[in-house]
Design a protein around this nucleic acid. Sequence first.
RNA 1: GGAGAGGUGGCCGAGCCGGCUGAAGGCGCUCGCCUGCUAAGCGAGUGUACGGGGUCAACCCGUACCGAGGGUUCGAAUCCCUCCCUCUCCGCCA
Length: 423
Amino acid sequence: MLDLKYLRDSLDQAEQRLATRGEAVNLTGFRALDQRRRELLGESESLKAEKNRVSTLIGQSKDKSAVQGEIVRMKEVSARIKTLEDELKGVEDELQQLLLMVPNIPHEQCPVGASEAGNREVRRWGEPPVFDFEAKPHWEIGEKLGIIDFERAGKITGARFSLLFGAGARLERALISFMLDLHTGSHKYVEVLPPFMVNRESMRGTGQLPKFEDDLFHTADPDYFLIPTAEVPVTNIHRDEILAGADLPICYTAYTPCFRREAGSYGKDTRGLIRQHQFNKVELVKFVLPEEGDQELEKLLRDAEEVLRRLQLPYRVVDLCTGDLGFSAARTFDIEVWLPAQGTYREISSCSSFRDFQARRASIRFRREEGARPEFVHTLNGSGLAVGRTLVAILENYQQADGSVTVPDALRPYLGGMERIGG
RNA sequence: GGAGAGGUGGCCGAGCCGGCUGAAGGCGCUCGCCUGCUAAGCGAGUGUACGGGGUCAACCCGUACCGAGGGUUCGAAUCCCUCCCUCUCCGCCA
């Protein structure tokens, strides 16, 4: 959510910067609503002051019959206040609805562009492997090895689900442990294991609601949502809190499954593990001082990259342009891993700064020192990494001519020393 | 799922036969005094949001907030209704 006072003072600038996102952002009506709100507030609050003053006098008077006229008058004042407040509530609801639908303002260093095509490659790491045979897609490799079964997953649940067996299941688990150990050990994140279902307030806090309800799995009773990313429960850990400035940055890492409806992606990535309704992810989340946001994002990005470096998987980093940013993000770097069968880089991590956008929605604040005014923190997060896609990358990049798959060195301790799957 | 108890300021905890309670008291914290050091002691201060004013920073005024939302009343932390959450006992259960 954007700052009401900023919008009031710099509406034109806000509109211009939002326009670089491409989609039309509707701020019409904001000014009128804001002004009406302040008029109603002014009138009802001065009437309340009057009411409070007179009511105290009535309470103090010995002779109630002497103040009968005031009682009658206050009755009318109260009725008037009620009318004003009803209208005020309507106006505030409308204003709130409007503000909750407005996306974040892009960071000034974001490349400006209308779509994915405007993204800027920042760096590449590693060399795509060269095979003396035709590289197979991971679903063929996995099914041949008997470690991935899409057909039975479809029977059990439906499309876009998967079933892992044996070394496949173990590899997935190994990746989770490996990533968590790296981030808690070398990178000093605190491991958390949050709820996988959250309430509406949490979803609103990070920005999934109210705009993207269609993308979420929902339970009817109670009214909960399955998390689409650990960002939601982990960022909301500190919702409605005031943190001590000295405690910042606060860094968490969490493994969770993620659940996404993938509405509107019919026909995309229909085969394989790339796009699933349920997938595992290890997430990194930070709460930082506003002035340290940019450098903390850079560090978070490096921490996520480190996973691929240790696994010796080639990747590149892309700086998303204004038109490709997510709703809540001010700045995003995607990490894309090389997938030989597709002959292209595919997203495996997305590292974003939300600045104070989520903090304002979720009311996450801090004090620089004891007694200082609360300020909003900046929130950051990134995948470190998407586990399913990492498994895909390993199967494809480490595949051998005979259909077996070599286990990356860094993972062997997590697989009881296993050096190869199949073969 | 059944029965009962309760949700008050950073924390503990009064108030709950309606008004003078943003809210007693204690703890914590900040500043000052005192003190060979420490501890103790003494004094003052110590929430947030919104709106208005302002030398637009410190500050001043107003309003709101005693789990959430409604209601009664001139006036509600205090009375009534609905919902949420926590705790205890029973049942069920990984």
